[in-house]
Amino acid sequence: MTTTASFDYLKKSRQKTGLILVAALLLLLSLFFDIATGPGEFSLSEIWQVIFQPDALGARMNIIIWDIRIPTALMAVLVGAMLSAAGAEMQTILNNPLADPFTLGISSAASFGAAVAIVVGVETIPIFGEGLITVSAFSFALATALFLYLFTRLRGSTSETMVLVGIALLFAFNALLSLLQYTATDAQLSQIVFWMMGSLGRSNWVNITVCFAVLCCVMPVFFYRSWALTALRMGDDKAASLGINVKRLRIEMLLGVSLLAATAVSFVGTIGFIGLVGPHIARMIVGENQRFFLPMSIISGALIMSLTSILSKSITTGVVYPVGIITALIGIPFFISLILTVQRRSWH
């Protein structure tokens, strides 16, 4: 016989699974519309045809869809998923709703890395030029993460220490970036600024493969630790009394989050906000049981990014605005209204 409380629990669990499936379906729809949106008026049925039979409507159509539209759309989904998953776990381990993957200075480090590469002039090197900017951004981001990792190993991994060191790093890299911008030539300066705006325009199949591989490496760890991460939300002591090595969990998650954030930022530049808002929306819908919270965060982040990508192409015909600007301008009022309409406060 199923009694009331357990019946309710099982029902709620099924509802949450249902909501996640609905969100996944919306994501698929959004992905399709993202592929269909852009300069060059193609009908939906034409797009559909090219996706499933690449050569059906000629080489030009094939190239537009398969080399430009699909990579950009997929990249939006992947980056959204990575940033949102990173944000979700960053908020969990730092016990702070304002945390996102960039709280600990990782994106500033990546921006600085990119700026260094641009000022040094690596893009003049044939073939590898563009790629080296990405490599430089990634190296700086990861080096910062490793520094944080070492620091927390030596000085303890309480959320307060991590946030304080992260903020110090953030300011340090911003200052260094300003210094570089001050000394850069006009051409370099505009390139740095454009890089920092965040854009999906550099997407290609290699980038997508790398992002996908990173996601595939990190996500199993996050999912495997989902009970422990849920327990961590009840406080360090409670989690520790349940047998969780809180310190190790924090450090493990820090590495995962850094890898996700560094990869995403080095390919698309700074896209803030997704890592903050994706998890918040997920939390409002399914709560913080990580078994639902993590998949919902991933999907909502990907969905927001995908919708942003559609929007960035639809405002002015023929112009693709940098997505970083769109997420901030459209997203923030939306986010604030969302907070105002939801009465339940999860953080006091």
Binding site: A5, K12, T230, A231, K238, L242, G287, N289
Partner: peptide, 21 residues
């Protein structure tokens, strides 16, 4: 002291303690 901020249901947190991961 019990952390009060988490958006976890009563059922979930008791289940969590019982499962002990």
């Amino acid at each position: 002291i019990f952390s009060t901020q988490a958006m976890l249901t009563v059922f979930e947190v008791v289940l969590l303690a019982q499962k002990q991961l």
